[in-house]
């Protein structure tokens, strides 16, 4: 599933505000814990989960579950395609702004 304009790099999947912020956070780290992303974005777990699912369906984000002390933690990271799509999208935004 992709909604990317190959000519400009503009990606409608990434452009949705919360998904853009998720990708922005994940672009500067290797992995981020679900709870940290949730806290930084200031959204509920269900809202974050919904947007992460869309990004996962697009192949942009992967999640890894780790259990420690009976507590499950979910780690998110941008895939190679996801990082490329995000960066192309940011470049498209800069083009639109006229940088």
């Amino acid at each position: 599933m992709t909604m990317r304009d190959p000519a400009t790099g503009f990606d409608a999947i990434i452009h949705a505000p919360n998904r853009l912020r998720i990708c922005a956070l994940l672009d500067v780290v290797e992995h981020a814990e679900f709870g940290v992303v949730q806290e930084r974005l200031g959204v509920s777990a269900s809202v974050l989960s919904k947007h992460v699912s869309v990004l996962m369906d697009a192949g942009y984000v992967e999640q890894r579950k780790a259990v420690r002390d009976t507590r499950q933690r979910v780690w998110l990271h941008l895939t190679k395609d996801g990082r490329a799509a995000y960066r192309a999208h940011v470049a498209a935004l800069r083009d639109i702004v006229g940088h």
Binding site: A24, V28, V29, R40, L41, R94
Partner: peptide, 15 residues
């Protein structure tokens, strides 16, 4: 687009 770029900066700065 400018507002979206500022959102990106804020999200990354929050880390």
């Amino acid at each position: 687009a400018g507002a979206a770029l500022r959102e990106i900066e804020q999200a990354q700065a929050s880390l």
